[in-house]
């Protein structure tokens, strides 16, 4: 009791009135109280990797959807004279970015050989002389579009399916679960391939096949969570008060499902991106002359030994996209569930 040194006057021993006491109220000096989402956001912000991933994704989104402003060339314009040119960034003289290439042991200026004049290609050109940079941007846009579409079906179909199945219970639930079980016993990729064959390869076939396969996991998780929530007191109270099922779903279920939904969404997206790239890679996805990261990697792979940049760049962009979504997903999961890290 260090502060005992201070002299105590007898006047100190008079009772404190109730009004004075309210000034002492501890509530007023407490740390700011945070809602669940604010608290999650605070934790997410502290997660450096997740924030970097978020920024990378934002940049990729801007580049891909604003590609009209960034594209230096038409992604589909072929120019056989300027085929297989290495990357050249004006003003940078580092091997790999200065338009030179190793040919039988000596470094030669590929642009001069091709009489390219003042033209430059940031990431070089492919075997038909198409600008790789523009094609990668275009492919990224396709990947991100697929990501958005998959998210849409996940939310519109998966969440609703899960809530209905979990909330209704009984026979409806049993039937809905059987359907999911059957869907689960066929590898997703096989379903997609079958659908694409029926619908003819292309963007719309990929979209349909993703629509049919992507929502299943979401539906299962949402159902499980709904079953758990259904028997909790606050839901029972709402039911006892006679609120309609629809109102309960929106007012009570959805907010409590939000973390499950967001986390699962973050894992649906990279899966969808992967499937599109995969299908395009094996040759039944996006078809020429349109570019997709999968087709670019497939094209680049053929020349990998001699022109490695043709595969490296699309592969890096695809991997960065997947890594960023996965890290962000991990970060979100950790921030929604404080137990899992910290």
């Amino acid at each position: 009791m260090a502060d005992n040194a201070k002299p105590i006057s007898t006047g100190d021993f008079k009772p404190v009135t109730a009004a004075d006491r309210s000034h002492l109220d501890s509530e007023k000096i407490s740390a700011p109280s945070l809602t669940f989402l604010q608290d999650s956001w605070r934790r997410l912000r502290k997660n450096k990797a997740a924030m970097i991933a978020l920024i990378v994704l934002i940049i990729l989104f801007i580049l891909a959807f604003g590609s009209g402003f960034f594209e230096t060339h038409n992604p589909n314009a072929t120019n056989p004279n300027l085929a297989n040119l290495p990357p050249k960034i004006p003003g940078i003289d580092i091997n790999g970015f200065n338009g030179t290439i190793m040919q039988s042991g000596t470094r030669v200026n590929a642009y001069a050989q091709a009489h390219a004049g003042n033209a430059y290609y940031l990431l070089g050109t492919d075997y038909l002389g198409r600008d790789l940079f523009s094609r990668i941007l275009y492919g990224t846009r396709i990947s991100l579009e697929i990501a958005l579409i998959a998210s849409f079906f996940d939310l519109a179909f998966g969440v609703v399916y899960g809530i209905v199945s979990g909330w209704m219970g009984g026979r409806v639930d049993t039937i809905m679960q059987r359907i999911i079980e059957i869907m689960l016993s066929i590898p997703n990729l096989v379903v997609m391939v079958l659908l694409i064959l029926v619908l003819k390869p292309g963007m719309s076939a990929i979209i349909y096949s993703i629509a049919i396969t992507s929502w299943i996991n979401m539906a299962r998780l949402v159902r499980a969570q709904t079953l758990e929530l259904k028997n909790q007191e606050f839901i029972l109270a709402a039911r006892a008060l006679g609120e309609s099922s629809l109102k309960i779903s929106f007012k009570h279920l959805l907010p409590n499902l939000s973390s499950v939904i967001i986390i699962n969404l973050m894992f649906t997206i990279p899966t969808a991106i992967f499937f599109e790239a995969f299908l395009s890679y094996i040759g039944i996805g996006i078809s020429a002359p349109q570019a997709s990261l999968g087709t670019l990697i497939n094209d680049g792979q053929k020349n990998f030994q001699f022109l490695p940049y043709q595969m490296w760049y699309p592969a890096i962009v695809l991997s960065v996209l997947m890594i960023a979504f996965n890290i962000l997903g991990d970060g979100l999961r950790d921030s929604f569930d404080p137990k899992s890290r910290e």
Binding site: M1, D3, N4, K6, I8, G11, D12, F13, K14, P15, V16, A18, R21, L24, D25, S26
Partner: peptide
């Protein structure tokens, strides 16, 4: 002190 009906002035100043 803040919850104490019997709080004294001194309670707010010194433990």
């Amino acid at each position: 002190a803040a919850r104490n009906k019997y709080a004294l002035e001194i309670d707010t100043k010194q433990q």
